[in-house]
Amino acid sequence: MTAADRFRISSLLPGRLAEQKLALPALLRRAGLPATFFQQEKIHATTAELFALWRAVGEISPDPGIGLKLGAEPRMERYHPAAVAAVCSRTYRDALQRMARYKQLTCPEEIQITASGDEATVNFIYHEAKEDEPEVLIDMALAWIFSVGRRGTDGQVTPLRLELKRPVRNRELLEAHFGCRVKFKAGRNALVLRKTDLDRPFVTHNEELLSAIGAQLENELEARANSADLGEQVKRTLKRSLAGRRPVLTDIAQELGMSTRTLQRRLGDAEITFQQVVEDTRRELACHYLKQSGVELNGVAFLLGYEDANSFFRAFQVWEGTSPGEWRTRQRAEVA
């Protein structure tokens, strides 16, 4: 898991899935995830793991509307602070902008809001995705966007249409939930709204609560940006010092002019570990060195600070799903 591909999963999710009559052990097995996945103190997943989890939900659940139900959570106490801030916003536009901004705190997923003519479109972009999004995840995300608008305007928002890439399936269920027609086999997964609906005031607007939560979230964003800068500093330092040396936190902290404890704490603030930065750095450098024809595979292992070539080969297999030699051969063939 690289620092850039990390979804923070709510600790409430296991309970919500159990409420939907899903057996968590069977779900995790189906998704190919560890049995202890939900037992982590802070639950994190890569995009691939997230997709595997939600695909398994869709395969195991007998309810075709499970994503819609999870996305339309009516209980405020189950909302993430960013969702509370959205409901307390001034208008639907304000709410969507806050949702998009604060999404950065939990994942590398982007909420994209675009306007054209009389229409406004909301869709989700998964920057690290290598496959199509699971249908349950799409349903849940778009239902969440819709539910915030309905709740904030006291039911005044009705979408123009729902666009889905999937083939025709469960039309009546989806149209009943969103109150609009569904266009299947579309080029995107998106909720299309009337642009005028974005300026509807929220009856749930709470300036005092919004200010308090907004200040907290803005502080988190600032801390995250600072920590991300620190992560890049650690990466640059590692790139200068890896060759022939096993990466040691104490050495990197010393080079950055801070104590080991301070570096650990600041990386923790960004919810990344030193080992994750090391792996991310090694992966980037491995691909760089393998593209250089003059560097032998054993030499690449040395330059990355591995004690032996086999350790490098095993790590690379995990990163890229193939051996360093096969990866190099494929790269050469693509260039030729």
Results as ranks from 00 to 15, higher is better:
Glu133Asn: 08
Phe274Pro: 10
Pro64Trp: 03
Val122Asp: 07
Gln20Val: 02
Thr281Arg: 12
Gly117Val: 06
Leu238Glu: 08
Thr329Ile: 04
Arg194Lys: 12
Ala56Lys: 05
Glu232Tyr: 00
Val295Met: 04
Val87His: 01
Ser10Asn: 05
Glu49Trp: 08
Phe313His: 13
Pro34Ile: 01
Leu142Val: 06
Lys103Tyr: 14
Pro134Ala: 04
His80Thr: 05
Glu128Trp: 12
Lys185Met: 10
Gln20Pro: 02
Leu297Asp: 05
Lys235Gly: 01
Leu137Arg: 08
Cys107Lys: 13
Ala26Tyr: 05
Arg194His: 12
Arg314Glu: 14
Glu307Thr: 12
His177Val: 06
Pro324Thr: 03
Glu133Pro: 08
Phe274Gln: 11
His205Gln: 14
Leu33Asn: 07
Gln40Asp: 07
Cys107Ile: 08
Arg93Ile: 10
Arg261Lys: 03
Ala23Val: 06
Arg265Cys: 01
Glu128Lys: 15
Ile138Ala: 07
Ala253Trp: 01
Gly58Pro: 03
Tyr79Asn: 03
Gly117Gln: 06
Gly71Leu: 01
Pro25Phe: 03
Met99Thr: 13
Thr237Ala: 09
Leu285Met: 15
Gln39Met: 06
Thr260Pro: 05
Ser227Lys: 00
Pro324Phe: 02
Gly71Asp: 02
Thr273Asn: 04
Asp280Phe: 13
Thr196Ser: 15
Gly321Arg: 10
Cys88Asp: 09
Leu230Gly: 03
Met140Thr: 07
